[in-house]
Each structure stands twice: as structure tokens, then as C-alpha cells.
Computed example of a mutant assay.
Amino acid sequence: MHWPQCNGRPIALFLDFDGTLADLAAQPQDVRIEPGLVELLGRLHEQLDGALAIVTGRPVDDIDHFLAPLRLPVAGIHGAQGRQPDGRRWQLAAPALAPVEAAARALQAEHPGLQLERKAVALALHYRHAPEAADACRQRLAELVAAQPGLELLHGKCVFEVKPAGVHKGHAIERFLAERPFAGREPAFAGDDLTDEAGFETVLRLGGQACKVGEGPSCAPRRLAGPAELHQALAQWSRHLAGRTEGSAA
């Protein structure tokens, strides 16, 4: 499948990380980067004149670690922090997460398979290894978020995340599109999770392209089976861009 499609306007490419560029792993730190992916992203970044960004639930520093030595524009923690193409960084003020963290640790004591991930301005509770705890986690975290203004509960693949209210990947994409080199381009976003739906809705509203990676319901009109198929599509697109550049030069 050809994705993104070239419809006349130059593309601004936005990519989720876990489950999209990289297969999900049992532990977040165990994600494996396929050979050639960093080089492919670097080549596309150059071919798009810098209009390629990672839009992820992970912190920016995680992405820099996995994609080293490449340093792309990144929106981390769903847009609560990020780095612009010129290196400028942003980060929202951290909300009051102490009560949520205390509750999450209490849940961990009851269900040892739970994994707590503390981010700069958010908190994620992974239940992949304790699926029986999902309902208890959802109920307890929802109670705390309802009692604490400024917080929002987000449900992803085997994870509940408490983050600043109103922060989502759609806003992060719009933030990039407001500045060069993204401004004026057609946005294209690929993601795999419920947390990516806000990004899909945003790019579709702006006349762009949305691609769901993997299974599950989605508003995205395009679909790829998994990260390997996305890599193939991006490599094919990169070859197309290279050929078009050579044709123009000729």
C-alpha cells in the first residue's frame, strides 16, 4: 500500500512511536529498533526539508535514546512537552500527581504485575502483566482524576495514563503546523492506539491523511498491519521522493 499519498501539496509527516514505528515490548525499555529504521527516518527528514516529527506518549529523552544519533522534532507525553525543529523545547507545568502516585503504588502492592512509569508531567500505570487489575485501576484512577481539577485519564493499550487535562496529540500536531518547516504542508499522521485518535481527527479536519497501524476501530481511513508494513510503506515513499528529486534535477 502507498502511504502517504502525494496529492499535490508537500507532506508534513507525523509518526507515533510504540506500536507504530516499533513493535510493543513487554517492558517500555525493552523496545527494539529494527535495523535501518533510524537511517530511513533521517533520510525522510532530509527529503521533507525537516517536516517530520515524532508524536508520542513517551518523554522526548526516550525517543532521543532509541533513535540516536538522530534528533528529530518531537512532541512527548502526548504534547505536554516537546522540541521544535530549531531545538527550542517546551514543557507544561507539572500537575499535582502525588495523590495519584500514592494510589498507583497501593494498587501495585495488591497486584505486583503492575508497572508504574513516572514521567515529567504525567504518570502511567501499565497492566500488561496484571490484566486482572484493569478494572480496579480504571476505577481508582478515575475517582482521583474526577476530584482533581487539571487532570485527565487516558486509556491506551494495557495502560492508564494520568496527564494534564486538554493535552493530546492533535494539539501537538497543530503546534508543529503553526511553524516552519511544517506550515503550509498537508499533515499525515500514523498511529496505533486509542491515544492517537485525537491526532487522526485533527489531520483529517485539516484535509490531511490518517493511517491506523494494527487492529482496532479507528476514524483513520487508511490501515497498515503493523510497524513492519509501515516501514515498507515509508521506504517506498522515500524512494519515490528521491526519484522525483532526481527527475527535477534532470
Rank of each mutant, 00 (worst) to 15 (best):
R128H: 04
A147C: 06
G247D: 15
R58D: 01
F200I: 15
G36F: 06
P112W: 00
A225T: 08
G82C: 06
R105Q: 02
C6T: 09
H65A: 09
L123E: 04
H129F: 09
R9Q: 15
C158Y: 14
R58Q: 06
C219I: 15
P59F: 08
R89F: 02
L206F: 07
H231N: 07
L114F: 03
H231R: 11
A80Q: 07
G113N: 13
V167W: 01
A233Q: 00
E161K: 05
I33V: 12
A249R: 11
V38E: 10
F176S: 00
V203D: 06
L177V: 14
T195P: 03
L52E: 01
A109R: 03
H168T: 05
K169Y: 15
L234N: 13
P181Y: 08
A136M: 06
F176L: 05
P28K: 03
G243K: 02
D49P: 05
G76H: 06
P85L: 13
Q148H: 11
W90A: 01
G191C: 03
L141I: 07
G19W: 09
V100E: 03
K119S: 06
H129I: 10
G208Y: 08
P131S: 09
A104V: 06
F182W: 04
P187C: 07
Q139K: 12
Q108T: 00
A53V: 02
A93K: 03
G199P: 01
L40M: 06
A68C: 08
I33P: 01
A25L: 11
D16N: 10
R88L: 12
K169P: 12
L44Q: 04
R138F: 08
F189Q: 05
T56I: 09
A250M: 12
G247V: 15
E215G: 10
C6F: 06
S218V: 10
R9Y: 14
H111S: 05
L177H: 12
F17K: 03
A25G: 08
P85D: 10
G170N: 03
T245S: 12
H168P: 02
L153M: 02
L123S: 03
C219Q: 13
L24Q: 07
A183F: 10
W3T: 04
D61H: 12
A242D: 07
L40Q: 02
Q236R: 14
E110P: 03
A106Q: 02
P131K: 04
E110Q: 00
P99N: 13
Q29M: 12
G82T: 04
E46I: 14
A178W: 09
L204I: 11
A80R: 06
A142C: 11
A109W: 02
Q108G: 00
F14Q: 02
E110V: 00
V31E: 09
F17L: 08
L107I: 00
G166H: 03
E117I: 07
R9I: 11
P187W: 03
C6W: 09
V74Y: 04
Q236P: 11
R185I: 08
Y127Q: 02
F200G: 14
E143S: 13
D86E: 10
F14N: 01
E34M: 14
E161G: 04
G57R: 04
N7F: 14
